[in-house]
Amino acid sequence: MIVQNFNHKMAAHCESGTITSLLNHGGLNITEPLVFGIASGIFFGYFHKMKSFAFPTFIVRNKPGQMRTNIEKRLGVRFKNYDFKDPVKGQQTLDQLLQNNIPTGAQVDFFYMDYVPSWERVHINVHFLVVTGKTENKYTISDAYFPQMVELDADSLEKGRFAGGNMSPKGFIFHLDKLPADIDYNKAILKGISKACFYMLKIPIPFLGIRGIRMFGKKVVEWPKFARDTEHLSHEIMKINILLEDQGTGGAGFRFMYATFLQQAATITGKPQLAELSAELMKIGDGWREISLFSARIGKNRDLGPDKLKQLSEMLYDRANVEERFFKSLSQAIK
């Protein structure tokens, strides 16, 4: 059983890509940046000491799953969601949906996705993909990170869907249930921007939003004390590049994709200030990219002394300052 007429498309990010694919399949012509922006996907969070993580880390997008729920609220679309305690029931329901020609989104632990090269696989419970078919014991998968559809053993998909730990997927699957007759994109875009500004500027938690970027800048100089040795520190510093560029951000920690959203939003809403801010964010993104390249370079060269970490810290503080100004301007532009 293969879902008919499903059009696989690469996307920058797994969750916004999955939602975009399902909406497109249902007949809604919407881009990934619009989904990302309306869902207030842009964010920042720094986690210095958290039991779930083996080393300090950061995130550059909102909470996993929130893109879907925000899109539902703001566009008026409806997804049907399922989670399971019993893997057998989880598989039966998925198979039934595929039998009914319904492409189905799934949340999985990336580690068990055997089609991914082993060096890329990490335990992260918030990877999203679309299951588009099943033949014998293999599922056909539309994973936004791959140019073509891929196949995955049923056993691996089950392991991925029912992995335990932080943000455990609990077999979660979802599919498009209903599209509204009319969508007020203007209202949805402004709400999406407004919430993004709130989370970046006003959320009263010291490690989130702009304050999170500053905390990252302050704490990154302490990273050596968490590392086993120089090689480990080098690996973790180089992961800054991966988290900003490679783990499905569209480049510069989602800043390039959000700039694309603002450019499209300017046309839809007729607010030219959004186009100007879009160009400004593209430049801000270039600064994040410099951080990515700097991290990769000092990591590779094992040039990880206090002076280099201080330099990295200053670059992060600088991003916090420019983003604070940017999000204040953005907040004003939609009033």
Binding site: A11, F146, M282
Partner: peptide, 16 residues
């Protein structure tokens, strides 16, 4: 290892 990057195109529009 392929990926999508959002960039400024020659016509000034941003896209994947």
């Amino acid at each position: 290892q392929q990926m999508i990057l959002y960039v400024e195109k020659d016509d000034g529009n941003y896209g994947p």
